[in-house]
């Protein structure tokens, strides 16, 4: 019961703030709602006992990326963006498409509910301690993909540094 209340609270928070991110005109308020949406998602992770995922979401997205977002936003002249048109003329087409995709999803869940098999939820103790399990899996079973992803990130980082570097 309490679990459901908590879940619906975070889910509603995430959904509403995600909508507000695209509808608000003031870009700083958009950023704040984006932070709220990310933190609400983190809350859902926490409720699922995925503590490591929760804190990584908070540190990386809310604490890292969004700080840089806000940092850049503050250097922009807000007055110009306030007077520009927020959407282009095809916004109704986008809305229509979004509704169709949404209807699809709802239909799929509604139909699939009776047809698709639902697995038994894993006992909470199986995932304890979650941080150690994540570490073992990443550095054991999925070592190669993990290293490949690291190298990809490293290449992207070096690329960014090279591009941003002034000619000396």
């Amino acid at each position: 019961m309490l679990d459901q209340i908590v879940f619906y609270f975070f889910a509603a928070l995430a959904a509403i703030s995600a909508v507000l991110v695209v509808t608000r005109r003031n870009i700083v308020q958009c950023a704040i709602f984006l932070i709220t949406a990310l933190l609400a998602t983190a809350g859902i992770f926490l409720q699922l006992h995925a503590e490591f995922l929760f804190i990584v979401q908070v540190i990386l997205y809310a604490g890292g990326i969004m700080v840089l977002f806000v940092f850049v936003i503050m250097l922009i002249n807000l007055d110009i963006s306030l007077h520009q048109a927020q959407y282009n003329r095809q916004w109704w087409l986008g809305l229509l498409l979004a509704l169709v995709v949404g209807a699809h999803l709802i239909l799929a869940v509604a139909v699939g509910r009776s047809v698709l098999p639902f697995g038994e939820p894993a006992p909470a103790t199986m995932l304890e301690p979650s941080t150690q399990i994540v570490g073992r899996t990443l550095f054991g079973e999925y070592m190669l993909p993990f290293e490949i992803a690291s190298i990809l990130l490293l290449v992207a980082m070096i690329g960014a540094v090279v591009m941003a570097k002034k000619k000396v």
């Binding site: 503590e51 804190i55 540190i59 604490g63 301690p129 941080t131």
Partner: peptide, 15 residues
């Protein structure tokens, strides 16, 4: 079980 990361991460939100 993520105690220390929690402290570091949450206090960083104060920014």
């Amino acid at each position: 079980n993520v105690g220390l990361l929690f402290i570091v991460g949450i206090s960083a939100l104060g920014i």
